[in-house]
Design a protein around this nucleic acid. Structure first.
Lengths: 200, 200
DNA sequence: ACATTAATGAACACTTTGTTCGGTTATATT
DNA sequence: AATATAACCGAACAAAGTGTTCATTAATGT
């Protein structure tokens, strides 16, 4: 029986496959990567791959789950610290995290084949954001925009900023990006939640 | 020589292929549709397909270019009518257009394989929106958010709303969606362009 | 009616996929 | 150090898709 540890061979194989995928994603789009490519680069038998993962997507997500959890933490902390200094720290850190891990994470942002990934990210974030918005909303008051839409909009805004930023070689600093994010999102949250006059 | 018209056979074939793709996209994701599927459904020889289109994407875009042009018109008209009644009419019409053509256009919104399409849409829109923003910006004044980012954000917001709306079976009316769009976007445009106090 | 142009469908070499299975090697345990 | 176990290997497989070629047939415009 295994000592709650995994066979070293398994770890080695998984890592080889993992690294192969990452390395390939730096070169071409996820869509265009074949399992053949992966096992070639990983130096792993065909049957071995299928012993570990049923599909390419399964591999992707097993690779990405850690990243997902980390990204989620940033949003959580963004929300939790909102009272004092509205989210400044953690969104900066989110961008910094991406910048730091750009080599391994960049493939995920490359055109196409990113849908799957970002759907997951958004689903993660939506939970926390929705809760946050509800807590902000004065009781008994109808928001001008349905909460589900506002939530979706905020998640999407972060994701779009991240995508754009990576795609444009991170030409602004994380701090700037954070600032831009707040400039885009805070006014509309205020406006939706408070009964600001609609204005002409 | 052809009378600037196309051979009837060509039209017939193109249409058959076109309809095959549309019909397949109502059933499964674009990614999962093979050329084999298409020629089977279209009842068209393999070589015939390749005589017309080099790739599946080429087919997609030839199908979609008309839609693109139409969508672009809505944004143009949104911008042009902004002075009097800020964009109300044409964004409603945009959602109505989608609703009307949902059978043929819905496939494009189905998860995955939409990146290609929406990149095109966004590129189209960005041109017009950027121009619009520049015209709004008082001369010599620096916007709080770079224009390219603000532009991207507005395009993305419409696209996300459209996607979300279609994905959720168009559960709100086009007029409502238009209202939500404005509630999400106008406050942040105002805030970015005018030197509103940043507020605490 | 006739020359032109398009569609056909079969054949092709090629790649990818997912599975199977007997043989080999690394591993943990004793 | 010996051994049972579990993991890897790799070759082979059928099945499906890709993109091209080509000789044959049919529709079209004039």
């Amino acid at each position: 029986m295994k000592n709650s540890e995994v066979d070293r061979r398994v770890m080695k194989t998984r890592q080889a496959i993992h690294e192969a995928l990452i390395s390939l994603m730096e070169e071409k789009k996820y869509n265009k990567i074949t399992i053949q490519d992966i096992i070639d680069r990983a130096n792993v038998g065909r049957s071995t791959f299928y012993a570990h993962y049923a599909t390419k997507d399964e591999l992707l997500f097993s690779n990405v789950e850690d990243s997902l959890e980390i990204l989620n933490q940033y949003i959580k902390s963004y929300i939790e610290h909102d009272e004092d200094k509205p989210g400044l720290i953690s969104v900066v850190e989110l961008f910094e995290h991406i910048k730091e891990h750009r080599k391994t994470i960049k493939g995920l942002f490359k055109e196409e084949g990113t849908d799957l990934f970002f759907e997951k990210v958004e689903a993660y974030w939506n939970e926390n954001i929705e809760e946050y918005i509800k807590s902000k909303l004065p009781r008994g008051q109808e928001p001008k925009v349905p909460i589900e839409i506002l939530t979706m909009h905020i998640s999407s805004t972060i994701i779009n900023l991240l995508k754009w930023w990576v795609y444009n070689n991170m030409s602004y600093t994380p701090t700037q990006m954070e600032q831009y994010f707040r400039n885009l999102v805070n006014p509309c949250i205020d406006s939706v939640i408070n009964n600001h006059s609609e204005k002409s």
